[in-house]
Write a protein that binds this DNA or RNA. Structure first.
Length: 127
RNA sequence: GUACAUAUGACUUCAUCGCUGGUUAGUAUCAUAUAUUUAUUAUGAUCUAUCGAGAGGAAAGUCCGGACAACGCAGAGUACCAUACCAUUUAAUAAGUGGACUUUGAUUAUAGUAUCAAAGAUAGAUAGUGUCGCAGAAAGCUAGACCGCCAAGGCAUUUAUGUCUCGGUAAGGGUGAAAACGUGAGGUAAGAGCUCACGCUAUAGAAUAGUAAUAUUUUAAAGGGAUAAACCUUAUGGGUUGCAAUGCCAUGUAUAUUUUGAUCUUUCUUUUUAGAAGGGUAGGUGACUCGCCUAUAUACGCUUACGCGAAUGUCAAAAGGGGUAGGCAGAUAGAUUCGCAUUGAGCGAACUAGAUAAAUGAUGAAGGCUGAUUUAUCAGUUACAGAAUCCGGCUUAUUAAGUAUGUACAUAU
RNA sequence: GGCUGCAUAGCUCAACUGGAUAGAGUACCUGACUACGAAUCAGGCGGUUGAAGGUUCGAAUCCUUCUGCGGUCA
């Protein structure tokens, strides 16, 4: 049975990789979310998906609300990423992605889950 | 009753999924080392299971103070910066506690005095310098004569007035934030602390009370504007920089390269290879000076010699480049909290966040609390706000309800 | 995370060592010049000196606390 995990080594952390992503990655828009992704051949021993979240300090000044949004986005990703993970394993690809929150209002979990589902479907189709 | 200030306070329990770091374990996987070539042992990482833990009163601002670390082993003086009533607490502070004084407000009272509260950068203006615009005659020390007051002399006449000259005068007017003690009497041509009485101010001495600041009484001599949040003087304290400090590992490599400067000199010893002392030069001591410390090398060519030359290396300064953007330590735990003890420097118990594109979340159920009404349903469970080396203060932000203390206002008795 | 600066008219800057209506250019408005416009000339409008307290007779300036915006450190 597949687990709903999002542990430390399944996150995108390298600064080099993130810079590369913003130079050459592809964008998917689904207001209030925005996804940047990049595909690579999978290296043995590394996880198939790398994920990270970002919220702008310009739109949300308080650190508390930024943390809150990041947690909601991460929760939505965690519960819905399993089909994508399996398909990318089959195709032997590593997908690096970063999710930006572009909106200016505090969202509900329900809304973010819907949008995240739409994005992941698009991502799977784009192969 | 209302408002404000301070303190308290910051929902609880269970289940499922997930994150972080830790404990214990594994016929698990990988790497390294030992020894050996079947394999065993140790260490580290990953995975799985298990146990218990996981954000504040301000985690914020960075306004103070420490711990700790590096700079050379941290010396002296000057500059610079900070502080400034007294006692006391403290590791330390611009913090806390208590007291003194000044100012403001309120009450009693309406002269004073007393009580309560708030604020105070509360040493020195009698060490010196500067400043005090406009207005005003004059703005700082023998002050200052615009109007006014008065004496003397001249002129005119209406013979007690006007005017002029030269003097005296700080009582009165007016200006200003501020005009050089206040009131009364004497005194005088008119006046004046010029003199006297009563007061005021601050200074010095004495006595009493108090640990002290200071207060009360008394004596002496005096009358001195404000400003130190202007310079400054006095006293006390501070070496500078800060965990992105600092040390190690990995990656990469370059003592790259270019330019400029220095690599000197005197005396003594004599083992003539060299050694010692002094001076100079350069650098360090992260403001300056002193002091202290370090360096001042090697071989070669030309010349009879003094000396000159270029070279290698080293040091210093400037220019200009290359690589990394990772990990570990620093950093879970200590001036901690609670209780007991005090002829001391203790004893016992308890507590424990450790992330790094940055963890502490999601869902469901039950209970508590608050509000609304249909009285058994609905809604809410919030404000300010997210650890980043660690502590002690200060400042700022802050919801609902309640409690306690204080202040102000209103009403009733 | 530490250290360290700045804030004046719509914009760019002044205002000495506290002194009284906070000034200059530009922009904007009105008038003159011109057949009309530009340029030029004359006049005008526009500021609680980022906010709140304090010191002083008097604060853009000195002091304190906040607000916003930068710079720098491996």
């Amino acid at each position: 049975m597949a687990k709903f995990t999002l542990s430390k080594n399944e996150r995108l952390k390298s600064k080099k990789a993130i810079d590369f992503l913003f130079e050459q990655g592809t964008f998917i828009n689904q207001y209030p979310l925005k996804l940047v992704y990049n595909k690579k051949p999978l290296v043995e021993g590394l996880p198939p998906l790398l994920f990270s979240v970002s919220v702008s300090k310009r739109n949300f000044k308080s650190a508390v609300s930024r943390n809150r949004i990041k947690r909601l986005v991460r929760e939505a990703y965690r519960t819905q990423c399993i089909p994508l993970k399996e398909s990318s394993k089959i195709n032997n690809l590593q997908i690096q992605m970063m999710c930006l929150y572009v909106g200016t209002e505090m969202p509900s979990l329900q809304r973010i889950q819907n949008k995240m589902a739409a994005i992941l479907v698009k991502l799977q189709k784009s192969k």
